[in-house]
């Protein structure tokens, strides 16, 4: 249990700027799919669970 705690807290949110840029730059803002889709895509980058060894 304690191991899980440590894993979670050590999990820094490191997301390469280029991934963020790519997510937003696939289309001009007016042609973008609904906000939900981009939110899910970006949230997956920032909130991904740490892989437990």
């Amino acid at each position: 249990a304690d191991q899980m705690e440590v894993d979670d807290d050590d999990h820094a949110a490191v997301v390469a700027q280029q991934h963020v840029v790519q997510t937003f730059n696939v289309a001009p803002s007016f042609a973008f799919a609904p906000v939900d889709g981009s939110f899910s895509q970006l949230a997956a980058m920032w909130c991904a669970k740490p892989a437990l060894s």
Partner: peptide, 21 residues
Amino acid sequence: YHAINMLWFSVMTQSVNAMID
């Protein structure tokens, strides 16, 4: 409307990310 909301979403998110860095 969608276009302005997406522009703000994109600019605000990327700017906050860059400002933190």
